[in-house]
Amino acid sequence: MEIRFAGVTKQFPPDIVALQDIFLSIDKGEFVYLVGPTGSGKTTLLRLVTRELVPTKGRVTVGDVNIRKIASHNLAYLRRNIGVVFQDFRLLPDLTVHENIDFVQEVIGVPFQSVQKRTNEVLDRLGLWRKRNLFPEQISGGEQQRVAIGRAIANSPSILLADEPTGNLDTDTADEILQLLLSINASGTTLVVATHNQYIVDSYRQRVIELRKGRLIRDERKGRYRSDGDL
């Protein structure tokens, strides 16, 4: 699934401009870093893709769907194709690791047996099998992040959006997470990673889109980007 932004402006009341006149195209299966300082509009851009927000001006298209025009009952179906990894993980504290991953499958009506099978696959892939019966507070930050990724990929989405997936993690754990994201991308999932972690952007070269004060100031194809200071 590809993502297109055509002249998108997002303004919050009274007159805060979060994004301004963004033209952008992310193709199916691409890996894109979305970089920029805090408040540059990265999260707003991701929230426009999931249609948590609608653009004030312009058009956001996901696949063939103009997200402004999508009917509310079809929105659920669109979202089933988009996995989201939140900055603060947002795991459900009352559910165990495997229940957190079961949950996203159950809510879209996946049959019980398939849920079990898929959860086991995901846990295996993330190296979380031994932690499956623990609650989020009983595992480390890196493990929580992996659970969050597992939850996002459990329904095999076409697009995976990750908001600061290495935010509070040390370099080793960040490396682990990046390896994981790369392997997910290798299986054909379009990946958009919002980050201001200079280390991962420099270490794992991919296409980089840079935002500042809501404007797209740079769009460098894979390998051409060189960071020039703090992201």
Binding site: R79, R80, N81, L92, V107, N155
Partner: peptide, 17 residues
């Protein structure tokens, strides 16, 4: 409410929630 917003975000229909 957090759980509900997550459910909606992962594609649960309103009637399901």
């Amino acid at each position: 409410k957090d759980e509900i917003s997550k459910m909606l975000l992962v594609g649960a229909s309103r009637s399901f929630v």
